[in-house]
Deep mutational scan, measured.
Amino acid sequence: VGDQVLEIVPSNEEQIKNLLQLEAQEHLQLDFWKSPTTPGETAHVRVPFVNVQAVKVFLESQGIAYSIMIED
């Protein structure tokens, strides 16, 4: 199991704000291929294997929908 690319769908401005804060966490080494800008629009982010669980827990705790787009 390696890195994953998640497709994330924020449903409101609050969730977009939370994702932008997540993007700013440099220690997570997230690679946003497509940043969140509009509710209902997908964002794509590559998550290093060591941080996959932490990111998924965060998304679930914020009620942000996501799916695994690419499993490496």
Rank of each mutant, 00 (worst) to 15 (best):
1 V>P: 14
51 N>M: 09
44 H>A: 08
61 S>C: 06
26 E>D: 10
4 Q>Y: 15
65 A>V: 10
7 E>T: 10
52 V>C: 05
49 F>L: 11
54 A>F: 14
25 Q>Y: 10
12 N>A: 02
1 V>G: 12
52 V>K: 04
17 K>W: 10
72 D>A: 13
22 L>K: 03
67 S>A: 08
48 P>Y: 03
53 Q>E: 14
50 V>R: 09
57 V>D: 12
62 Q>F: 12
68 I>D: 04
8 I>G: 00
24 A>C: 06
44 H>P: 02
32 F>P: 02
10 P>C: 07
65 A>Q: 10
15 Q>H: 08
66 Y>R: 00
8 I>M: 05
61 S>D: 09
68 I>T: 07
66 Y>A: 01
5 V>Q: 05
70 I>R: 08
2 G>I: 07
14 E>P: 03
30 L>H: 01
48 P>I: 03
28 L>Y: 10
46 R>I: 05
27 H>S: 14
41 E>Q: 10
31 D>L: 07
37 T>Q: 07
29 Q>A: 12
63 G>L: 05
43 A>G: 04
2 G>L: 09
51 N>S: 15
1 V>C: 08
12 N>V: 02
62 Q>G: 05
56 K>D: 01
13 E>K: 10
42 T>M: 09
26 E>W: 08
24 A>F: 09
33 W>V: 14
39 P>T: 04
21 Q>P: 01
11 S>W: 11
30 L>F: 04
19 L>D: 00
14 E>D: 11
44 H>R: 12
12 N>I: 02
2 G>M: 08
57 V>F: 13
39 P>N: 03
64 I>E: 00
71 E>L: 13
52 V>T: 06
15 Q>F: 02
21 Q>A: 13
9 V>A: 07
36 P>E: 02
31 D>C: 08
29 Q>H: 13
58 F>H: 04
71 E>A: 13
16 I>Q: 02
50 V>A: 15
34 K>I: 09
60 E>P: 00
45 V>W: 02
36 P>Q: 02
5 V>R: 05
38 T>P: 01
17 K>D: 07
45 V>H: 01
33 W>N: 06
5 V>K: 06
10 P>F: 10
63 G>T: 03
50 V>W: 11
2 G>E: 08
53 Q>S: 11
49 F>N: 11
56 K>H: 06
54 A>D: 07
33 W>Y: 15
24 A>K: 14
32 F>N: 02
55 V>T: 03
36 P>I: 05
18 N>E: 09
45 V>P: 00
12 N>T: 14
31 D>Y: 08
20 L>E: 07
58 F>V: 04
13 E>Y: 11
33 W>Q: 11
10 P>L: 06
9 V>Y: 11
22 L>W: 11
17 K>M: 15
45 V>N: 01
3 D>Y: 11
9 V>W: 12
67 S>E: 13
20 L>Y: 07
45 V>Y: 02
32 F>R: 02
48 P>G: 04
44 H>I: 15
27 H>E: 12
71 E>M: 11
47 V>A: 02
28 L>W: 14
38 T>V: 15
9 V>T: 08
